[in-house]
Simulated scan of single mutants.
Amino acid sequence: MNPTNISVTESRRRTRAIIVMLILTILVITAFIISMNTGHIRLSPLDVVKTMFGGGTDKQHLILFEFRLPRIIISVLIGAGFAVSGAILQGLFRNPLADPGLLGINAGAGLMVTLYISFLRDNSSANLFLLPLLALGGAASAAVLIFMLAYKRHKGLLPTRMILIGVAVQAGINAAMVVLTLALDPEDYQYVSIWLAGSIAGSNWKYVIALLPWIIALIPFAMIKSRSLNILNLGDQMAKGLGTPINRDRIWLLAAAVGLAGSCVAIGGGISFVGLVGPHLARRLVGPQHQLNIPTAALLGALLVLVADTIARSFSSLPTGIIVAIIGAPYFLYLLSKTK
């Protein structure tokens, strides 16, 4: 193909990607504004604007700044974190079904958090900031176990084997969590059950502060390593031929994916399918290049969780994770039907 034609095609692809990301950004901002007006106590757009700029009543200020805004921001951060984690895993293992929830990484983080809630939980701020670290340790342990079981000495890492082992590890960890929850008193059992379903209810600014550093550090890191992710997608032999340190890059990228998933699970609970749906839709919209795919997936994930949480707040008895599952499960079945 003529280099000029390649350049034109690449330019068009980038232009299309920029347009898609602008549209998604507008949709996220629109959903953000609608979410601020949604709840059992409705605030009109004018009330929201007045309260944002220092007006409004004390009650409106309390509702907007202490209840709604932290939860909305957490929804955006969790959606972006899960989606980028899924994009990294799908790129690393060249498998569109790779997802932190399906691979057992979420379950590993969930097990550590369940142990914490069961035996050590209290309301101090220090323990709140320890929660992402504990979740990260559980997620990393699950990831290492899956990696070791899926790796074959002469064949390398087999993606299909990894998926199957991830599902098996997830099932085993979930069984352990069921045993743990059965020993809890009714109040703690209800707390853990809601958390495992994926609930953002009760979020406050402390949760935002606990999660924000992970998102700020790891998503830009994934963007910086996006070129390496593109090369790894070509296969190990091609990546070695291009001089890429594949083992080092794979470990760093896997650590970033685990860190994002673990911290998001610690704050938002067992929200599934975001890391599957976001990256897959992003590839369809902007193509496989991770320089474009990762930010698009982050915007799609943020939009999905924000919309799901806005719906969940309209029905206070439903956790956000249930709404996400209602949206994501049919899409997962569709992907399975299309995967050879």
Rank of each mutant, 00 (worst) to 15 (best):
G172P: 04
I173H: 05
N174L: 12
N174S: 15
A175W: 06
A176M: 15
M177W: 09
V178H: 12
V179P: 00
T181E: 09
T181M: 14
L184E: 13
L184S: 08
D188E: 13
D188H: 12
Y189N: 11
Q190C: 02
Q190S: 15
Y191I: 04
Y191N: 11
I194R: 13
I194E: 10
I194K: 11
I194C: 03
W195F: 15
L196Q: 14
S199L: 11
S199K: 08
I200A: 04
A201L: 12
G202W: 13
S203H: 04
W205M: 13
K206P: 00
K206Q: 13
K206A: 12
V208R: 09
V208C: 11
A210R: 03
A210T: 05
A210Q: 03
A210Y: 05
L211F: 09
L212E: 03
L212A: 14
L212F: 13
L212P: 02
P213M: 06
W214K: 02
I215S: 02
I215A: 03
I215M: 06
I215P: 01
I216R: 00
I216E: 01
I216Q: 00
I216L: 12
A217M: 13
A217V: 15
L218F: 10
I219K: 01
P220Y: 09
P220T: 07
A222G: 11
M223R: 06
I224P: 00
K225N: 07
R227C: 04
R227Y: 14
R227V: 09
R227M: 06
S228H: 07
S228C: 06
L229T: 04
L229G: 04
L229W: 02
N230W: 05
I231P: 01
I231S: 06
I231A: 09
L232V: 11
L232D: 04
N233Q: 14
N233M: 12
N233D: 13
L234E: 12
G235D: 09
D236S: 14
Q237W: 02
M238C: 07
A239L: 08
A239Q: 07
K240E: 14
G241K: 05
L242H: 08
L242S: 07
G243Q: 08
N247I: 12
N247Y: 11
I251G: 01
I251W: 10
I251P: 00
W252A: 10
L253R: 00
L254G: 05
L254W: 02
A255L: 15
A256Y: 00
A256W: 02
A257R: 01
V258T: 13
L260Y: 03
G262I: 03
G262A: 08
G262Q: 05
G262K: 04
S263G: 01
C264S: 10
C264Q: 00
V265W: 03
A266Q: 05
A266N: 02
A266S: 12
I267L: 10
G270L: 07
